[in-house]
Amino acid sequence: MDLSFTPAEEEFRRELRAWLGAHIPQEWTRPGFWESVPDDEGFAMRREWEREKALAGFAGIQWPTEYGGRGGTPGMKAIYDEEMVLAHAPRTVNPLGLTFLAPTVMAIGTESQKKEIIGPLLRNEVIWCQGFSEPGAGSDLAALSTRGVRDGDDFVVNGQKVWTTYAVHGDKIFTLVRTQPGSERHRGISMLLIDMHQPGVDARPLKQMSGASEFGEVFFTDARVPASDCLGPIDDGWRTAMRLLSFERGASGTSQYTEFRRQYDEIVEVARTLGRDRDPVVRDRLARVLTELECLRYHAMHVLTQTEQGRDLGFEASMTKLQWSETFQDLWEVFDEVLGDDATLETIDGIDLRALHGQAMWSRSVTIWGGSSQVQRTITAERVLGLPR
């Protein structure tokens, strides 16, 4: 495992840090700022800022230059993830497209799809959503029932998707649809790329308990999709989806560690403000979480080293997803314990808790989406450790 970066990578860090320092307004870094901005206004601000960042050459860090990327190393991508967190940079408005769709299109997309999707996505000209979960198909994704019936050169799609991130802001959606009549489970599924601004596509917001409406549900009613807008082979979408999800589960964990460690320090400050840092039980819980965080850091560096050596992580990606999601959840359980009876307060002694409350509520979901912890443990046991079924 290599814990160092090359001189070229450190020079990239200095360049990126300088750009971020000059282009992130100070007020954006103030606790509670984004919670005080209306959802639509905040989305528009982040979209424009991210477009400017892409035009400055600080997007698609590890993407090939032919696709508008920087052609950087895995180490540069890890530095980018870390510096974005340290600078309190805004969250991306196109996470699903940038992290999952674009690498998949680069790997298996047609030349036309590469040209039409990757550049506009990088510059935030097109916001992409992911349509996987359905009311009756969550962790058991193979139970999906949204159908596409072939009609000439098109598929006519009917069905519903739910928990779709940025559904109300999305321009297009990559979604799993059952396109082979009579098929069941993993067979007969296609990944279709659907224009969300056409008739027959209705996106509705879902308000979360935090008050945000980041998610939505999408209804398809006789929506028409050209058969050429299928990513990967028709009726072989399950294989395409598994390839796409490997990018979600296989990140090194560098950005997660950096963000979680900053949040840990904020939770410790709250504990000190409330005098809970003197409670031996709380101190023990904080120490345990800090240990987990440092284990995550070393695992992230291990994965980064493997990636730099050109190794395909394969099913080991499940280990990364399992580790960071469980660590994140443990971190925010400690936060709830620190607050105790003050858990409903928005501020304590001048500390704005709104962002922390939002993260605490969000933490409950991370062991479900992207493959539940139960699924990841099964994959790790069977396909990494070689244990019997």
Score class of each variant (00 low, 15 high):
Pro64Trp: 07
Gly75Met: 14
Gly42Asp: 00
Glu48Asp: 07
Asp81Leu: 10
Thr65Phe: 02
Asp81His: 11
Ala56Cys: 10
Lys53Val: 01
Pro64Ala: 05
Gly60Cys: 05
Arg70Thr: 04
Ala44Phe: 01
Glu83Thr: 14
Arg47Glu: 05
Phe43Val: 03
Gly72Lys: 11
Met76Arg: 14
Pro64Asp: 04
Arg47Ala: 04
Gly72Cys: 11
Arg51Tyr: 01
Tyr80Leu: 06
Thr73Gln: 07
Ala56Ile: 14
Met45Thr: 01
Gly72Asp: 09
Gly69Asp: 02
Lys77Arg: 09
Arg47His: 11
Pro64Lys: 13
Gly57Ile: 05
Glu83Val: 11
Glu41Thr: 07
Leu55Cys: 03
Glu83Ala: 10
Gly57Ala: 08
Trp49Met: 07
Arg70Ala: 05
Val85Ser: 12
Thr65Glu: 11
Ala59Ile: 04
Ala87Arg: 10
Glu66Asp: 07
Thr65Lys: 09
Ile61Ala: 05
Gly69Tyr: 06
Met84Ile: 12
Gln62Val: 11
Pro74Ser: 06
Arg46Cys: 02
Met76Gln: 12
Asp81Arg: 14
Arg47Ile: 02
Gly60His: 07
Leu55Asp: 03
Asp40Ser: 04
Met84Asp: 03
Ala44Cys: 01
Gln62Cys: 15
Lys77Ala: 07
Lys53Leu: 08
Gly42Lys: 07
Lys53Tyr: 02
Ala59Asn: 10
Arg51Phe: 00
Gly60Glu: 02
Ala54Thr: 03
Glu50Leu: 09
Val85Asn: 12
Gly75Thr: 06
Ala56Lys: 11
Trp49Arg: 15
Gly69Pro: 04
Ile61Leu: 14
Tyr80Arg: 15
Met76Phe: 08
Gly75Lys: 09
Glu83Lys: 15
Trp49Thr: 01
Met76Leu: 15
Gly71Phe: 06
Gly60Trp: 07
Ala54Ile: 01
Trp63Lys: 10
Thr73Leu: 08
Glu41Gln: 13
Ala59Cys: 15
Tyr67Asp: 00
Tyr67Phe: 13
Glu82Gly: 03
